[in-house]
Design a protein around this nucleic acid. Structure first.
Lengths: 258, 258
DNA sequence: TTCGATTTGTTCGTATGTATT
DNA sequence: TAATACATACGAACAAATCGA
């Protein structure tokens, strides 16, 4: 292993220097920075704890504390006897983390997507505010219809900045063969780490009703959702409409388990 | 300090004996059990880490790991230089943890409650299933109207088992002067630790529309929510209707912070 | 199949720092 | 100031899982 290469630049942490916080926090920051710079790809092993300890000239326990927090944040995954890995944002993970629509029995299922429209546009006032852009900034506007159990349940209108996703193409987007967030990651190096959702109820207009196979005026969920990357930059705005005839938005509050 | 009293019964953990898991997990279980048995009241300090270490005959590090998990689960709170305390389920905590309705600016506010009705009843099929009761089991049915900024926004229909809350009285309930979950805690020793919510959209009927000051047929959120105690027993079922004319159900997915 | 090397997981003990009383 | 209590950091030893020779 080319461990020597990693230390050509001296990354030793100087305990004499003044640090803004504890040592392990600094180690965590450095590992995070390497993660964002793509030093290790998704799913790959990062250096061992003792390698990090040598690299930063700290004890293994300090490295463990730093890595432990990143594991708690689900950025890394530890496997005893094998190593520590960059958490792979796979389908199941995405479904688990960023998708809250379940059927009436509580089952969650991966939705099928049908692209309805894909075009360029400019940010209006609302979009600009939500995505922290200037009004009129170039964006892509994408409409998707999502199916669960061969039934159209969700209608999505997405807006993403062209600056964040340069040269996004309809054809490539259409046959991405993975989740949209996964595509952001592999094609643009954009990792979504956080999503905020505002859920409201609205009456379906006739166009939406037709798309979802319900009656006009029927109540549907209106979810406005903003996705952020690791450093807090908003990268996607999504207006989502959900028929809750046989599905629901499911959420757990408080402790995850006993 | 009567530390000697705490060791009259030998709680030493035998490292030679076979444990189902790591030592710190056993320590965590014992602390949790003491917590549930009310050995230390809400807000009170629990023994220091070194006292626990002596009590269970383990190292301080092992105690720290056990307590650390309980802190992560927000059961305990650590204060440097002072001690570790039983998390007090106060108003702010409850608002933070179990209330997801915000106004359109994203502000969260403590709701005012108006009791609409309070009566005894029996569990129907749905209630029995959700609360894991026998059909016909005695329950209390309570209706509440909740106000935000002097505006009626939420209509609640609650169902709780009489077996869990024996001799619950309308008058006492009405002038509880605290959150409902807080009342469960102080009056019945029932700590809610987890809530599951199913959010759907429905059209308001005329009675609900009148209560919330909206038009009949207008879309509102329909939240079905079950509250569980530490050991997973369901203790409350709540059917909630929310007007989203100027409010929303807000939720964050993924990482909490960078 | 066995064995050894590697890596994380657990536990211990100690020392020092920082906040509170 | 002194004592107390949690926070951080270090180092060491062994356990358990994994993988490849």
């Amino acid at each position: 292993m080319p461990d020597n290469l990693a230390v050509t630049a001296d990354e030793t942490l100087d305990p004499g220097g003044v640090l803004p916080g504890p040592l392990y926090a600094e180690v965590k920051k450095r590992i995070t920075r390497s993660l964002m710079e793509g030093e290790w790809p998704q799913g790959a092993a990062i250096p061992t704890e003792s390698q990090f300890a040598r690299r930063y000239a700290v004890s293994v326990g300090t490295v463990r504390k730093a890595i432990g927090e990143l594991v708690a944040e689900r950025v890394l995954v530890r496997r005893r006897g094998r190593g520590t890995f960059v958490a792979s944002r796979n389908r199941d993970y995405m479904l688990d983390t960023y998708f809250r629509i379940v059927d009436d029995a509580g089952r969650k299922e991966f939705p099928e997507t049908r692209l309805i429209s894909f075009r360029r546009g400019k940010a209006d006032a609302v979009v600009a505010q939500r995505l922290q852009l200037m009004r009129g900034a170039p964006v892509y506007r994408i409409e998707n219809l999502l199916f669960l159990q061969d039934q159209s349940v969700i209608f999505d209108r997405m807006v993403v900045p062209q600056a964040v996703f340069p040269d996004l193409r309809e054809a490539a987007f259409r046959r991405r063969g993975m989740t949209i967030f996964g595509y952001y990651q592999t094609r643009f190096g954009i990792t979504v780490t956080r999503v905020e959702e505002w859920v409201r109820a609205v009456n379906a207009d006739s166009k939406l009703a037709a798309a979802l196979g319900i009656a006009a005026g029927e109540a549907v969920l209106a979810i406005e959702r903003v996705a952020y990357t690791y450093d807090g930059t908003p990268v996607e705005l999504r207006h989502r409409r959900v028929s809750t005839r046989s599905h629901a938005y499911f959420s757990v509050l408080g402790m995850k388990q006993a």
